[in-house]
Simulated assay, not measured.
Amino acid sequence: MLQVTALPLSELRERTSEKWREYPSDVLPLFVAETDFPLAPTVKAALQRAVDLGDTGYIASRTPLPAAFAGFAERRYGWSPDPARMRTTADVSMGIVELLRRVVQPGERVVVTPPVYPPFYDLVAEAGAEVLRVPLRDTGTGWELDLDGIRSAFEDGATAMLLCNPHNPTGTVHDRDTLVALAELADEFGASVVSDEIHAPLAQPGTGFTPFLDAGEAAQRVGYAVVSASKAFNLAGLKCALMVTADDATTAVVRGLPVEVEWRTGQFGLLAATAAFSPESDAWLDGLLRTLDENRVLLEDLLATHIPGARYRIPAAGYLAWIDLTALGWGDNPARRILTEAKVALHYGPAFGDEGRGYVRLNFGTSPEILTEAVTRIAALVDR
């Protein structure tokens, strides 16, 4: 059984990415969605070979990535997307914007479901549209899409929805029945659904993750998925994502995008993603999921022991914890105090929407030692 272990802090501080350069060295950075693990051996080998060959030019007009992703989707999700219905771009955010620009008109409204990944608000605006908020429903044990609210939004004229599947920051894996119902709603009102599935490879085994385009015939008609290996394999800086469709009309939309949308794909990103989605990377990904499973449970234990006022639900996917600190009385944005006084950087809850007031988002894609130290530092504020 492969064990995926985070690098020691001394090595991590040699990295020059956002996570390790935004704050001084006395701060533990658990804010941005980068992980602390070494590259998967297959990915490292692919990048090393490219360096050795000087394979650093433009991406080719035909690449093995679509077929690699199709194989990955079949093995991991039981879904068989058509490689001929895929096209690459630089990253998931760019794919979202380019798709929204073609499925909504300027000034039309796009449904988002807060608390949600903060750039969603900006991406809708960049596409010339307006955000229509339909918050997730808190069931008492988790979160779910508010299908009645989404129906009302479509009745009120919204022409598209930006879906987060799995959901960031809650780690919710939307069940198949919910996605089928959402697709049928969109189909009924002639709306489009753009599904951000960047966290999909990180759905824990047994959660029943369903790709949106695999949620029935209506989903195929109304849906676009944007996928990437970047979150699971820590490849964000290499710039590569795939736009995926499952219907002739939606495929025509993607094929009609300017060639520059595809040419913005990074060559290293494409090579790394192809390696990440290969069968040879499955054992590493399984090992990563086991490590994240251990960390998400460890975080629950640490919070219960040291910060009993915190409310945390173990996420079904990803390495991001959505933690309610309202009971501590640290205001709408407790991450500010935690950063200043505990020297732990967490993502600001209110950035995800009004529903994030009193919350923080914590990245547990790290070592147990760093996770324990971070919670211990925050707990010291409670003890004061």
Rank of each mutant, 00 (worst) to 15 (best):
365 G>R: 05
164 C>L: 15
14 E>D: 13
202 L>M: 11
111 V>M: 00
231 K>V: 14
228 S>R: 03
60 A>Q: 14
344 V>D: 08
290 R>W: 01
324 D>K: 01
85 R>L: 09
41 P>W: 11
294 E>N: 07
373 E>P: 04
153 A>W: 01
329 G>T: 06
224 Y>L: 04
154 F>E: 04
303 L>P: 12
380 A>P: 05
366 T>R: 02
353 G>S: 04
212 F>Y: 07
297 V>K: 11
267 Q>N: 13
13 R>Q: 12
325 L>I: 02
3 Q>Y: 13
357 R>M: 14
259 V>F: 00
284 W>D: 01
22 E>P: 02
190 G>W: 01
295 N>A: 09
183 A>I: 14
114 P>S: 02
337 R>I: 07
308 P>G: 07
359 Y>E: 00
267 Q>H: 15
376 T>E: 15
55 D>I: 10
364 F>L: 05
110 V>N: 02
306 H>D: 13
74 E>D: 11
281 S>Y: 10
258 P>N: 06
44 K>M: 10
66 P>A: 07
215 A>F: 12
157 G>Q: 06
278 S>H: 04
281 S>T: 11
57 G>W: 07
230 S>P: 02
250 T>P: 05
282 D>E: 15
57 G>H: 07
226 V>P: 09
174 H>T: 14
232 A>P: 06
82 D>G: 04
34 E>N: 09
296 R>V: 00
126 E>Y: 01
275 A>P: 03
151 R>T: 12
45 A>V: 06
210 T>N: 01
39 L>D: 10
76 R>M: 13
42 T>I: 03
234 N>Y: 05
121 Y>M: 03
369 E>T: 13
376 T>R: 12
74 E>M: 13
100 L>A: 05
152 S>C: 06
54 G>S: 06
102 R>C: 10
234 N>E: 08
157 G>W: 14
123 L>M: 14
364 F>H: 07
43 V>H: 03
75 R>Q: 11
332 D>S: 14
116 V>I: 12
103 V>M: 04
282 D>N: 10
331 G>N: 08
335 A>N: 09
242 L>H: 03
177 D>R: 13
180 V>G: 01
374 A>M: 08
354 D>Q: 08
371 L>Y: 12
241 A>E: 04
295 N>R: 15
32 V>P: 00
377 R>I: 11
51 V>G: 05
252 A>I: 13
137 R>Q: 15
277 F>D: 01
215 A>T: 14
378 I>P: 00
208 G>W: 07
6 A>W: 12
250 T>E: 03
313 R>F: 03
150 I>G: 00
252 A>G: 10
307 I>S: 07
141 T>A: 08
182 L>Q: 01
179 L>G: 08
87 R>Y: 13
279 P>D: 00
277 F>W: 14
370 I>T: 15
107 G>V: 05
24 P>E: 04
172 T>G: 00
78 G>E: 04
307 I>G: 07
91 D>H: 15
50 A>P: 12
118 P>A: 08
335 A>G: 14
126 E>P: 00
272 A>C: 03
271 L>C: 07
201 P>V: 02
352 F>H: 08
367 S>G: 08
